[in-house]
Design a protein around this nucleic acid. Structure first.
Lengths: 229, 229
DNA sequence: CGTACCATTGACGACGGTCAAAAAACGTGG
DNA sequence: CCACGTTTTTTGACCGTCGTCAATGGTACG
């Protein structure tokens, strides 16, 4: 784990000194703490960030690039647990071990923070604890929404995925997907081929436009939302 | 919400006075707190405990009976988020609103605790906070395992469900299911018919025995685990 | 004993998986 | 800038699993 060992072992409490002064800026407090306590580590495309069942000593935040968490079964099937984009936090576990593995989808910059440091901070500061709690809840909602996707038809799943990505990358109707069709398929519980076919179907129906394989334009969000259910 | 309003609005801190004396009994501390702070409410079969989007003012613990959380879509499809058996805690949200609805599957006794009371306790007592955190993590793992089920074949899903239930009700190989086939189907993203057919298939293969519709005997766990993957 | 509700079984069709091949995109080095 | 090999994506043909519709059988409870 952490093959690119540029982790700064020491960290400073500096940033937390005057945090109690502005408790109303709730989301920026934890964020600031993480930013100061952590070290930036570059990961190149397709390299492992941590493995399933490794001890969860660090918490991670995407600064640039994209990350996938996943699990591989004995028969080779892979399930992707989630995609993490700039600003997203991942690897936040309550247990001692990671339940999924994590890989960089493309060249990425990741902020790495010692878990014990975060937890120590949370014990001292209720505001930080509250924010960690709400972060956990956000992740929970993400996973529950994922479940709701997985019971739907192929078309609904793909559309749901597109709308989710469009929400998370607020770049209008132009989505730049960092992941392959196989990644999307493994996230949605479908095959690569079905994802591809469904996308061309959607393009034929004029709901989207495939500018290139990875660049998708949402042309009719109303239609997409109607499909999603 | 809480139509059967037997909630005791006041609660006592009595139980928390000497909690710091035994920090090593980690799981019993929060449990004790909940037990003392809460009120027992009976819910009859198929009655709503809370609805989706209602404010999450209470946290619940099953004392007897069983509970399902669920979501109903516009087109009538229903997804069951989870089943909760005696000892299980549900309705633990980080947000202000419940994301799922909850119903009693059969006549049940539920311990109901004010959320603010729990949170206040957690702020005063790091041990309680830690336990709430780990409870949240347990729920997270449950939901993630649910995702892993949903990408598999019908047979694998049903077997996965049976093994999960067998683990949670440590009654040997004899499982007494409180829920209907439709409930199981809506949990696994299948139809009632497929669940039924799969169960009879498993019986034909001598992996299980359907003593009655709701009583299932696991005859060959090895075979079941092999199927599950 | 009768009446809902629940579970099982059957016939059939559609959706999505599998296998295979072609086409497009990408990166690398000349 | 182009030629080349590799990876990714698309498309096609076929088949199996599971959903749909419908009827029958079973169980619990008044």
């Amino acid at each position: 784990m952490l093959t690119q060992n540029a982790i700064r072992t020491g960290f400073t409490w500096r940033a937390t000194n005057n945090l109690h002064a502005s408790p109303q800026l709730s989301t920026s407090l934890l964020r600031d703490s993480i930013n100061v306590m952590g070290a930036t580590v570059p990961y190149s495309r397709n390299t492992e960030i941590f493995g399933e069942n490794e001890s969860a000593d660090y918490v991670y935040k995407v600064l640039a690039g994209a990350v996938r968490t996943y699990k591989v079964f004995a028969d080779g099937r892979r399930q992707i647990g989630g995609f993490y984009l700039p600003g997203d936090v991942f690897g936040l576990e309550t247990d001692d071990c990671h339940t999924f593995s994590a890989e960089a989808i493309n060249d990425a910059k990741i902020l790495v923070v010692k878990r014990t440091a975060l937890m120590a901070l949370a014990i001292r500061d209720n505001e930080v604890a509250r924010e960690l709690w709400s972060m956990m809840g956000q992740e929970m909602r993400r996973v529950q929404d994922h479940i709701l996707l997985l019971i739907k038809s192929a078309k609904e799943r793909v559309v749901g995925f597109l709308l989710e990505m469009a929400e998370r990358v607020p770049s209008g109707n132009n989505i730049e997907l960092p992941m392959t069709r196989q990644d999307i398929a493994d996230y949605l519980g479908l095959t690569m081929e079905t994802v591809s076919r469904t996308l061309t179907d959607l393009q034929t129906g004029a709901s989207i436009k495939l500018a290139s394989a990875r660049r998708i334009v949402l042309q009719d969000r109303g239609a997409l939302r109607r499909i999603c259910g």
